[in-house]
């Protein structure tokens, strides 16, 4: 039935690694960002919120193009790294990781934002008045109350990263074991007219996507957080 080649496994491993890293980083960045966004209204917040949501409407190639310009050996960041004796970030795992973090940012921030808005400031203020420190407040008050939001944010960012294609193609090339993720592997199989292999991987991603959405809707029903 399903027979994946060693190259397919390399791509699967890499894709999962990218997903895990991206999700981890996004939860770290996304939580304070969403908290700040949820803690009031101001033109600056609206502007930041718009920037965060940009990847939803922007073609991934735009993101990929800017990243290539920034991270490549002739780019600002890549060039600076080169002049400091490091290597630039185009065609590297770090490069596609940076791309994925931007690309999936809204999918982590939105659910967290909604969850934070839903609980309001009260529980935190009460906890503070009872003498709980900031970390304590986060782990014993906010986190349990917004658990559903975190599950949705993590699952969505992970799943969305697995579906990334355009930006990775531009910033990553398609280098086996480094930047050749599943979506690019499928593209490559199709181009090689290796339809059987393309079918297998596509089916794999399709089932996974369904599973993720199923989990999210289940969580939503239980916790009543957000709709993706």
């Amino acid at each position: 039935m399903i027979e994946l080649s060693p190259a397919d496994w390399v791509a699967i491993r890499l894709t999962l690694k990218l997903g895990l890293y991206t999700t981890g980083i996004l939860l770290l960045i996304g939580t304070p960002l969403a908290w700040w966004l949820a803690s009031g209204r101001s033109p600056l917040r609206t502007a930041v919120q718009s920037v965060v949501a940009l990847p939803i409407v922007l073609p991934p190639t735009v993101l990929g193009f800017y990243l290539l310009i920034l991270l490549g050996p002739r780019g600002w960041i890549g060039g600076t790294l080169e002049s400091m004796g490091f290597t630039h970030l185009a065609f590297t795992f770090t490069g596609i990781l940076i791309g994925s973090v931007f690309y999936s940012l809204p999918f982590a921030v939105q659910p967290l934002y909604q969850a934070f808005v839903a609980i309001g400031r009260r529980p935190v203020e009460v906890a503070a008045s009872l003498g709980a420190g900031p970390l304590d407040r986060f782990f014993t008050v906010i986190l349990p109350l917004t658990r559903g939001g975190f599950i949705v944010a993590a699952t969505l960012s992970f799943a969305h990263t697995l579906g990334e294609f355009g930006a990775i193609l531009m910033i990553g090339g398609s280098i086996p074991g480094r930047t050749k993720v599943l979506s690019i592997m499928i593209y490559d199989h199709a181009e090689a007219m290796n339809y059987a292999a393309a079918h297998q991987l596509s089916l794999l991603l399709l089932s996974f996507a369904f599973l993720v959405l199923f989990i999210i809707y289940t969580v939503n029903r239980r916790f009543d957080v957000v709709r993706p």
Partner: peptide, 20 residues
């Protein structure tokens, strides 16, 4: 040994941009 296929022009651009 790994091989990456593409159009010659695109490969060239990638090499000029530091592809390994």
């Amino acid at each position: 040994i790994e091989v990456v296929y593409g159009s010659s022009g695109k490969m060239t651009t990638q090499i000029l941009n530091g592809a390994p």
